[in-house]
Amino acid sequence: MAKTESTFKNMVISLTLISLVASACLGFVYEMTREPIELANLNKKLSAIRQVVPEFTNNPNDEMYMLPTGDGDSLEIYPAKSGNEIVGYAVNTNTSTGFSGNISLMAGFKPDGTIINITVLEQKETPGLGTKMAEPAFKDQFKDKNPGNFILKVKNDGGPVDAITAATISSRAFCHAVQRAYNALQKGGEK
């Protein structure tokens, strides 16, 4: 096959053709992967919710609503129901007070505000130090505690929480995020 000459017409035609074919292929792949991508996102959220509340029979994602935190923003609340009875709430909470950037948690509460479990959705803390917030040794100390009488502060600040060694800022941020979730859920945003 002879090499195509670099005339203006040939250049325009070949670039246009390549762009058209490329866009068509991408559009096709996009359509094909759109549903799996949505499904993957939903599954991730649901599995996080499942970890922090008791077994439920409804679809918490469909019944999600927002409550204000009192800091001027709102958090997503996922009610978990077994039959018609509410067994817990999963709160997607976050804070920007971490050591490096946002920390996002899924915190599960009983209807009376007692913490059931917490799981870390996203964090960029220092590997090996702040990242330990995702390990049971740290986050399990919040289990079965009610922020109504369990002050969410690390020991340095006069609270009962054992901070992660060499990662007090991350530990503080973790407490702050849980407090925000509690504020939104129990007090409807009042401080």
Binding site: M1, A2, K3, T4, E5, S6, T7, N10, M11, S14, L15, I18, S19, A22, C25, L26, V29
Partner: peptide
């Protein structure tokens, strides 16, 4: 052989970017 020499690099970039997006 179909791509004229002068627009070789931009064409390659489009092809590569498409595969990356996939």
């Amino acid at each position: 052989n179909l791509i004229p020499d002068k627009v070789r690099i931009p064409s390659f970039i489009i092809i590569i970017a498409s595969f990356v997006t996939v």
